[in-house]
């Protein structure tokens, strides 16, 4: 049950972000799908390992990988599909908690949350790059197979 509600909610959120970022109309549905799959992967890994950094990496990797497949299929830049999928993974909560603790003069806790936010954004970027490299190698391998029978 939780998968259905979370899936629907993340689909709505990602599609809404597609509208805000003015994505092409025919790509909106797929933006939502990418966001939904990314969020479900993130949620699962987070529940399994209780580690937001690893979960963000897994989510970002999935988002970027599917976005690459979509971009090949629809002949559009990959960024169109990945942006709205990445947004739910952005460490808004950690950054907010860091800021809030700074205001409350609890600097030790603030640094803890700030470091977490930094690590999460780093892992999102790593996930994106890893997926890109893997798809590039994959495409190269396919081209090689086709040219060398």
């Amino acid at each position: 049950m939780i998968y259905v509600t979370q899936g629907i909610l993340s689909f709505i959120a990602a599609t809404a972000f597609g509208v805000i970022f003015n994505a092409p109309k025919k790509s909106l549905f797929y933006c939502g799908m990418v966001g939904m799959i990314g969020w479900i992967v993130y949620m699962n890994v987070n529940q399994l390992y209780q580690d937001q950094v690893a979960a963000s990496f897994a989510g970002a990797f999935t988002v970027a990988f599917i976005s690459h497949i979509m971009s090949k299929k629809f002949k559009m830049p990959m960024i169109i599909f990945s942006v709205s999928g990445i947004i739910p993974l952005v460490p808004g909560g950690s950054a907010y908690n860091a800021m809030r603790n700074i205001v409350e003069k609890d600097y030790v806790t603030a640094v803890e949350f700030g470091t977490q936010a930094l690590l999460i954004s780093g892992s999102i970027a790593m996930g994106l790059v890893f997926a890109e490299i893997i798809t590039q190698l994959w495409v190269k391998a396919i081209v090689k197979l086709k040219t060398k029978p």
């Binding site: 990445i86 952005v90 808004g92 954004s121 780093g122 999102i124 970027a125």
Partner: peptide
Amino acid sequence: SVMPLVPGLLITNAVR
């Protein structure tokens, strides 16, 4: 509520 304001695209593009 601040999620629509968060510069998510900028952060990922910057690291990218």
